[in-house]
């Protein structure tokens, strides 16, 4: 949905699964106060919700803020208006991707991309492939800092190097392809 169209941003967000609660926010700030990662958000959780309500589409979708959500759901259980902020932040992420925004100062989208690529390739996530893909798409040298953890996992049989493909991989492809054909604007 482009800016030229009549729908304002808050309505656009409310139509993405997970974004339904955006209109309920009363700006009490409980989400921000409960958030274990708030200090690294460009705009705090309650700020980013206020910005959605203020129709600041570009500023919200280009921000790294929602990508800092850890999915701990502390805000969700404490929100007195049942906004379900965790789901809301994930719906903002998916809108940002859909509209081609590339948020700066966060590698989380690259990690998520690598994760989903791994699913699309084999039907299951190979944690090894996911990590390799992530470091190749961000900073391959950063992988050096991971050697100790990788060795910990490898040497304890917790990081198989080969990926297993599900038998129904073709079915999964067909399902995803069909959705592409029928999803319309969603």
């Amino acid at each position: 949905m482009g800016k030229t169209q009549a729908m304002n941003f808050v309505n656009e967000v409310s139509q993405v699964p997970g974004g339904e609660g955006v209109n309920l926010c009363m700006q009490c700030g409980t989400c921000t106060a409960s958030c274990p990662s708030a200090k690294i958000w460009e705009f705090t959780p309650s700020e980013i919700i206020a910005m959605v309500r203020a129709d600041m589409r570009d500023e919200v979708l280009s921000s790294s803020s929602m990508w800092c959500c850890l999915s701990c759901y502390s805000c969700t259980v404490r929100c007195p208006r049942d906004v379900k902020p965790t789901n809301l932040f994930h719906s903002l992420e998916s809108l940002a991707i859909k509209h081609g925004y590339k948020p700066q100062n966060t590698n989380t989208p690259a990690m998520y991309n690598s994760f989903v690529k791994s699913i699309k390739k084999n039907g299951r996530v190979s944690e090894f492939n996911m990590m390799m893909g992530y470091y190749l798409s961000t900073n391959p040298f950063a992988a050096l800092g991971m050697m100790s953890v990788a060795w910990n996992l490898l040497s304890h049989g917790r990081m198989p190097l080969s990926a297993r493909k599900i038998k129904g991989k073709n079915d999964l492809d067909k399902i995803i392809k069909k959705l592409e054909d029928i999803r319309g604007d969603q």
């Binding site: 699964p17 994930h90 719906s91 998916s94 991707i97 989208p109 998520y112 994760f115 989903v116 996530v125």
Partner: peptide
């Protein structure tokens, strides 16, 4: 799909 899939494409 875990969190990453839904964050990139909820539907």
């Amino acid at each position: 799909g875990s969190t990453p899939y839904g964050s990139l494409d909820e539907l």
